[in-house]
Design a protein around this nucleic acid. Structure first.
Lengths: 219, 219, 219, 219
DNA sequence: GATGAATGAGGATTCATTCAT
DNA sequence: TATGAATGAATCCTCATTCAT
């Protein structure tokens, strides 16, 4: 049920037994990729460990050599994507970006986010209602991280707002982002681009009125 | 596979066999209510028919006296709620409402919708990814219905837009509505009210710029 | 499990409460007819009591008002047909028939038997492997009855044979009869008639050589 | 629904993965043997997969590792026996056998058939009314095969008969064979031998009159 | 490490039978 | 009596997980 310790600890040690570990890491990557595919197609609940093993081209026993249970696979997969996502957020929510005029700000922040999600559709599939504690935790962590960042942006817009108000607005903004992501992920080509543009329009119009008081620190 | 005819046909005739049928109807209502609770808590896939029966205080056999399989329960439950929802939509998307100034329009349309969803949280749980054909169909029907109505409203705002553009915007609006509903359903009291208000703000600001050309038919 | 006593006893008393009994008898006949149809189509094992009740146009509860369990239905149905069969056998295995030359003897005996089976296909369906004790008993009774009669015919053919030998031959003859009945019941029209003729040919050729010593008592 | 490909394909390759597969093959054989016993005792319909697994000394899950469903077990079992049966038929219906005088012909053909059935009583139990499509198909295939062979024998006896007539007679002969097999399988020792002898007597007397025109190729 | 067989609890569904009305 | 709802044990089958090789 709980997140297994071995998994969490591993990234740290990369010294001893290089050959063995290397093969193991490859297996893990292979299994996670397979899991990503299966989760994407069937969702977490409907995905069977056997089907993941089959997709990865290994036996169920091998899968359990690396993951103690089904949840751990999802948690690890989620964790890795989360790490990437967080890293990317760090590169995106930069002062120099946040100081830009709203339209550019939105481009600078949203474009990388959208691109990442499109390239990692499993992330979406996982983070959405899996109902599993371990994953929900990760989702919450991700959500909380984004929330904080959005709140801080909002705070620069309306410095006089109550924290609760900011929290609320940030949640709404994230909701808009998520629902648009659904549309974006479900479409392709021009349509996909149009949805991305429309998302920015929505947020622009929502945020513009708040911006009036923004300190011209961006100059 | 399909819902048995007796279920569908019954609402029409309410004359013959009053006593016996009455008990059956009560059982069905009771089972659907139990199912609503269980679906809400665990989602469709994780809900077991036995747990639904237990929640309803009957044996599994009784459940199967009224429903041929698990899917049929969800489909019937979804169908009933759908019916109510559609009825309500009809009463809400009235010319007299749509002719109002935007803020009042949003109040008139959104308040009943939000209230309905809050009183029938199972609807949301069901319509969201159950993965079951029967329910997906219902969801699509609901979605299509709402889409059409929203599009027609939009058309009165921007009569010169291409159909594709309207379709796109309507989808975005529905997405915003859904994501806000998630927040509304997940909160209570003042917070809930605040989310509802914020939803209206978002939509107001999104739609206002489109409204300029609206014919003043509302006079 | 065992054969219920009430069922067996009933035919005797036909005095009191004439109206009630009459209705009951009609119900029973109706149920047995329905059962005959269902057994014929699905076999005993696959036939459900509910389907029999439905076929008879009554509720399962009503069925159980007259029969204590599924087996009793089959036993009663089998018993009634058995009775008819035995009655017919009595009218067929008459000295005057048995004294005829073989070809006429076969006609006289087989034609009514075949006709009866064709008109009561459920009999066959039931008597064949139901695996149910009560019915097996009946089948055995029927079989024993026919066996005895065939043996007695055979005895008039070969009076010097050992009883074991006669028993054996009688069984073989019954087997031939049964397997031909399968073919007869599975076909129609001319084909059916052809199978009946062929059955007689088989038996004629099998029995002819035994007949040589037959006492000319038939004169 | 259909038998999984792995099962069917396996007999061909016996090279790779020797150890693992071997255990699997043993399990399959063990399960089929258990199934043969249970089918024999209870018939196909009444046999439960759990009881088959129990008889084989494994868990239900293990059974389903090798067979996708109950029907597949019966089909595979039937198929294997069918294969043996067909092989044997090929060795029995040889020109050299068919050219023999009738009595020797009957011995040459029937003795191996009877022996096979006695050693594989499950075959009989299965092929008789299971009501399952897959098995019925196999039964029909077996029946058709035997029918063709018997017809060809008959054709050498009565070359002037119409095909329909031959077909009819072949069916009657098969029926006689089957019904005698029932008697043979239900008895033991001397009695069993006596039934076998009697079967030959029946067929001899039935066929002798047809033989007159047979070409004397048997010399 | 890898394999694939083994496990068994759990879930959907059926059906003979009973019971309240 | 008739009805049809109610029962629950039993059945087929799945799948996360373990184990022998």
């Amino acid at each position: 049920m709980a997140v297994p310790e071995e998994k969490r600890a591993r990234p740290a040690e990369k010294v001893a037994a290089p050959r063995r570990q290397a093969r193991g890491e490859r297996r893990i990557a292979q299994l996670l990729e397979a899991a990503a595919g299966v989760f994407c197609r069937s969702g977490y609940a409907a995905a069977s460990t056997n089907s993941i093993a089959r997709e990865a081209g290994v036996s169920p026993g091998t899968l359990y050599q690396f993951f103690p249970n089904k949840e751990a696979i999802a948690v690890e997969l989620g964790g890795r994507l989360l790490e990437q996502a967080n890293e990317m957020h760090g590169q995106v929510f930069l002062p120099e970006n946040l100081a830009k005029p709203l339209p550019e700000l939105l481009d600078a922040v949203l474009d990388p986010l959208i691109e990442f999600q499109c390239e990692n559709p499993a992330f979406w599939a996982l983070m959405h209602g899996s109902g599993v504690p371990g994953i929900t935790q990760e989702h919450d962590a991700l959500h909380a991280g984004m929330l904080t960042r959005v709140e801080s942006v909002l705070r620069s817009f309306c410095p006089d707002d109550a924290p609760d108000g900011l929290h609320l607005k940030a949640n709404v903004i994230l909701g808009i982002f998520k629902s648009s992501m659904d549309l974006i992920l479900a479409s392709e080509g021009e349509e996909r681009a149009a949805y991305a543009t429309e998302l920015k329009t929505v947020l622009l119009r929502y945020l513009e009125p708040m911006e009036v008081t923004r300190s011209p620190s961006a100059h």
